[in-house]
């Protein structure tokens, strides 16, 4: 089953979110409007709003309240993507020109800051201060994760713990918080929103590990960027860490540096793919998924829980 089919019962509400996203970034400034729309229309899985809405279904669901959190989180994610493209000097995202490529870095910085501000304005419609404490803390952690990622580039002496902490900050906590905030907005008991946080966290960890695996195993067409881009950029992901346990591969991987090119690392990518690193990475991703399913067991039965279960399964098994 396709991902979108799993939560088709949310379609009307997701359309409300989509309309709200477009309305929120409206501005009289022509270029800013164009740049923001360019980003919005590039699409995306909208996985954070989906998690927010599903979590909210476990409480007193009111789309007009919960949409504020869903839109705020998606805008925050979008703002971070615009800035990430400046960091990575990326030309393409989802097959479309990035804002920094279509205009320049400065326009991308201002657009990102503008979208971030709109997201915060949207979020201030939520009156629950706990929601703000959780989200603001998450944002700070997220930045720390990205800073660590840069610090750890081409650092071949990092360990599994460093990697896991980085992906937690980079990806997992925002998904965790999407679930938790959706639940808080609909007034569920603390025990339920805590479980949802951990569910989102484990799913997020599994999601990022899978993403890191797919960077090796998918085609350029599927990824929208050349395979092995992470390694070329010096990001030491789980498959690389596992592969480095083999002395021969360890030696080869350590030769990759800031000036290496795609052709030079092609052989190394093939060797990583043929090693047991991919299977071992999938196994760890699965372990996180199992933990996610265990958290789900604590939640009340119903359509939301079943959908969370299906979405988690999909994320674990996705091929690109």
């Amino acid at each position: 089953m396709k991902l979108k089919m799993m939560y088709s019962f949310l379609n009307n509400d997701l359309q409300i979110i989509e309309n709200e996203l477009e309305a929120t970034i409206q501005t009289e400034r022509a270029l800013l409007q164009e740049a923001s729309l360019h980003l919005l229309q590039a699409g995306g899985k909208r996985i954070r709003p989906v998690f927010v809405l599903l979590a909210a279904k476990l409480g007193a669901y009111d789309i007009h309240k919960v949409k504020n959190v869903a839109v705020a989180l998606e805008l925050m994610h979008m703002a971070s993507l615009v800035h990430d493209d400046v960091i990575d000097d990326a030309e393409l995202r989802r097959g479309k020109s990035t804002i920094k490529a279509k205009w320049d870095n400065r326009i991308a910085m201002y657009t990102g800051d503008y979208i971030f501000a709109r997201s915060l304005e949207m979020m201030t419609k939520v009156e629950d201060i706990e929601a703000h404490r959780i989200l603001s803390n998450t944002l700070v952690e997220l930045c720390k994760g990205e800073i660590e990622q840069i610090r750890d580039k081409y650092n071949y002496d990092q360990n599994l713990r460093t990697y896991l902490r980085r992906i937690k900050r980079k990806t997992a906590i925002l998904i965790a918080v999407s679930c938790q905030l959706g639940a808080i907005t609909s007034g569920v008991p603390a025990s339920v929103h805590q479980s949802l946080y951990w569910f989102g966290y484990y799913v997020g960890m599994s999601f990022q590990i899978t993403d890191d695996i797919l960077d090796f195993t998918s085609t350029e067409e599927q990824l929208g960027k050349p395979a092995g881009s992470d390694l070329l950029q010096g990001n030491i992901t789980l498959p690389v860490l596992y592969a480095m346990e083999s002395p021969a591969l360890n030696e080869k991987i350590r030769t990759i540096h800031e000036h290496s090119n795609s052709a030079e690392i092609k052989e190394i990518i093939e060797l990583i793919k043929r090693s047991d690193a991919i299977d071992r990475s999938f196994a760890l991703s699965d372990r996180y998924l199992e933990r996610a399913f265990k958290e789900l067991e604590k939640l009340p039965n119903g359509l939301a829980k079943r959908t969370f279960n299906n979405v988690a399964k999909y994320i674990g098994k996705r091929k690109y």
């Binding site: 971070s80 800035h83 400046v86 960091i87 910085m109 800051d113 971030f116 915060l120 201060i129 703000h132 404490r133 989200l135 603001s136 803390n137 944002l139 700070v140 997220l142 930045c143 720390k144 990205e146 800073i147 840069i150």
Partner: peptide, 20 residues
Amino acid sequence: QLTVLAGDFYSGLYYRLLAD
């Protein structure tokens, strides 16, 4: 790269400070 992230980090701190 770090200048981009530093700006984001300081923005996050402002939000956290007032949320606290």
